[in-house]
Design a binder for these strands. Structure first.
Length: 425
RNA sequence: GGAGGAAUACCCAAGUCUGGCUGAAGGGAACGGUCUUGAAAACCGUCAGGUCGGGAAACCGGCGCGGGGGUUCGAAUCCCUCUUCCUCCGCCA
């Protein structure tokens, strides 16, 4: 959520910066008007409440001393109704402001690359060059089928389209990657491991920004009349881990590495990436999450990017890092890097990780703050999240980049001890 | 699933029956001090925090006893409702 105070101070500036997202935010002017009206009424009703409190106190004193308080009670008689009416009008205005701001995306960071679409994203760096094959490389869906390590048909039978069964060494590869990534981040990069609930409540999804606007992307459950959602990313439970808390400055940055299975409806992606396991309703992911003071936020962001890249470096996979332009930025995020891994079947780089700083946008929604000193006023933290990495797409990258002429797959060196084999055949 | 009980400030806890000098006794912890070569002990002192609004500021006011609603001039206290936790029984990986 963006800061209402920032809006009050300079709506036009906020609107201008938000417009770089290529949408219309002129409606925010109305929010400022309503806010002003609301605050005026607030002053009015608070004065009335103060006088009611004063009179009630006097009534108490009168009665205690055995005096007649009828006159005072007459004085206070009409106040209640007026107060109630004013309170109701404040509540309406407040609710309007709140709902509107809940649906307003984050302001891109100060020096954001202004652009219209992903076309305008900017490449930051590249690592390794795409492999050159002496034979026509085979896409992962064919490799996986031939090796009998991913069962597409039975996935559809059991659950439906965009579900698969990992089998044999395919299942082991998935498991090895999870273990490997968690190990690197926890033991070498110093993140604290987390395995949170995969089912999250409405408050959690609202705090991170999926609700109310993006409900269509989520798998929704209804248990005894209450709504729950399957988490679309570990970011949701991990950020909410500290919801409604005041953190100690000395504990920052707090850095976690979480494992979850992520569930996505992919509602708007019909017909896209239909072959293989690039876009499934269910996939495993190792996620990095950090809570930092605002002055450290962007330092941690770069560090998190490096930590995610490290996995691809260890796996010896070619990738590039791009910075998203304002038109391609996720709603809750102020700045995002994507890491794209080389996929021979696409003959292109494909997103495998996304590392973002939400600044105080999620912290304000989730009410996560920190104190500089024990006696100082709590301030909102920066929240950061980054894939470290999406496991399904890592499987794809390994199958396709490590394939041999005979259809077998070499196992990356760092995975061999986890896989107990150096080749999948 | 059945039957009971509980939620008060950093922690413990009184107050709730009988509404008003209670935004909250007492204890612990913490912090500051006296004493001490230093520390402990003892003693003295401080100790809701938060949030929203007004104000240049000093400061003033609203809210606030798990959440929401109601009764009342006035609610920690009465009523409704939700949530969470605990105990016992049943079931269970």
């Amino acid at each position: 959520m963006i800061d209402i105070r920032l809006l009050r101070e300079n709506v036009e500036h906020v609107i201008e910066r938000l417009q770089t997202r290529q949408k219309d935010f002129s409606y925010l002017r109305q929010v400022v008007d309503v806010d002003e009206r609301m605050r005026k009424t607030l002053v009015e009703v608070e004065e009335l409440k103060a006088s009611r409190n004063e009179l009630s106190k006097q009534i108490g004193e009168f009665k205690r001393e055995g005096n007649d308080a009828t006159k005072l009670m007459e004085q206070v008689a009409g106040l209640g109704e007026t107060i109630q009416a004013l309170d109701a009008s404040i509540e309406t205005d407040r609710e309007f402001i709140h709902q509107t701001l809940l649906e307003t995306p984050n302001i891109p960071y100060q020096d954001a690359i202004v652009g219209v679409s992903e076309e305008d994203n900017v490449e930051v760096r590249k690592h390794l060059t795409p492999p050159v094959f002496s034979f026509p490389p085979v896409p992962h869906w064919d490799l996986a089928e031939q090796l009998d390590i991913i069962d597409f048909e039975r996935g559809v039978k059991i659950a439906g389209p965009r579900f698969v069964v990992y089998k044999g060494l395919g299942a082991r590869l998935e498991r090895a990657l999870m273990q490997f990534m968690m190990d690197v981040h926890a033991m070498e990069h110093g993140y604290i491991e987390l395995i949170p609930p995969y089912i999250n409540n409405k408050e959690s999804l609202t705090a991170t920004g999926q609700l109310p606007k993006f409900e269509d992307d989520l798998f929704k459950l209804n248990m005894e009349g209450k709504d729950y959602y399957l988490n679309p990313t570990c970011e949701v439970p991990a950020i909410n881990y500290h919801r409604d808390e005041v953190l100690k400055k000395a504990d920052l940055p707090l850095r976690y590495v979480g494992f979850t299975t992520a569930f996505r409806k992919e509602a708007g992606a019909a017909g896209r990436d239909t072959r293989g396991i690039i876009r499934l309703h269910q996939f495993s992911k190792v996620e990095l999450i950090a809570f930092a003071s605002p002055e450290d936020g962007y330092v941690i962001h770069e560090q998190m990017l490096n930590d995610a890249e490290k996995i691809l470096q260890l796996l010896e996979l070619p990738y590039r890092v791009i910075e998203l332009c304002t038109g391609d930025l996720g709603a809750a995020m102020a700045k995002t890097y994507d890491i794209e891994v080389w996929l021979p079947s696409y003959d292109a780089y494909k997103e495998i990780a996304s590392i973002s700083n939400a600044e105080t946008y999620q912290a304000r929604r989730a009410n996560i703050r920190y104190k500089e000193q024990p006696e100082s006023k709590p301030e909102f933290v920066h929240t950061l999240n980054g894939s470290g990495l999406a496991i399904g797409r890592t499987v794809v990258a390994i199958l396709e980049n490590y394939q041999q002429a005979d259809g077998s797959i070499l196992v990356p060196k760092v995975l061999q001890s986890y896989m107990k084999t150096d080749v999948i055949k």
